[in-house]
């Protein structure tokens, strides 16, 4: 049994469900989820910033949970992945329906270079899914816009612009 296990483990594939599509991914060699997304699947909307779980550029959702994909080993992923490419919806007529967080970022023209913005939006979207009406002294706009107050978000998302 053990011999068969070692003879075959190198060829094992795992299934990843990303933005509603199922992909067959080689389990080996061990690598972070981010590398699979960017280099193997071409989903380059998720960015590489620090590679150390520090900046948040690489944030994706796994079953709705915001996760830093640069420090998430591929083999530990169990669940549906959502990346920035899957945050907006494609309407039947082909037009793009932005997620409310994307819409808010658009209206406020939030970023500069936008490199770390995908991660910021993914973090905000996951946060708002769990806290639809966040409150706080300095959160003056949340009632009308449901926009995550940046003071909550930014301490954990390092923008270097």
């Amino acid at each position: 049994m053990i011999a068969i296990y070692y003879l075959t483990w190198d060829w094992k594939n795992m299934k990843l469900r990303i933005n509603g599509t199922e992909y067959d991914i080689a389990e080996e060699p061990p690598r972070p989820l981010l590398w699979v997304l960017r280099d193997e699947l071409g989903l380059t909307g998720t960015k590489f910033g620090c590679g150390a779980g520090f900046c948040g550029s690489c944030t994706v959702h796994i079953d709705g949970e915001a996760v830093r994909s640069c420090v998430t080993p591929l083999t530990t992923v169990a669940g549906e992945i959502r990346t920035i490419e899957g945050l907006s919806l494609m309407a039947e007529d082909g037009t793009i329906q932005l997620h409310p967080v994307q819409q808010a970022f658009l209206e406020d023209q939030v970023p500069q270079c936008s490199w770390c913005m995908s991660g910021q939006m993914m973090t905000a979207a996951a946060f708002l899914a769990k806290n639809p009406a966040p409150t706080g002294d300095r959160n003056r706009r949340s009632d009308e816009r449901k926009l995550l107050p940046l003071w909550l978000l930014l301490p954990r998302e390092k923008c270097s612009c």
Partner: peptide, 20 residues
């Protein structure tokens, strides 16, 4: 509005580091 913003919002914009 920024001319390149919508593609950046949806993750479609290509940066140098995204080129393969």
């Amino acid at each position: 509005p920024r001319v390149d913003f919508e593609s950046k919002l949806t993750g479609k914009a290509l940066y140098g580091y995204d080129m393969r």
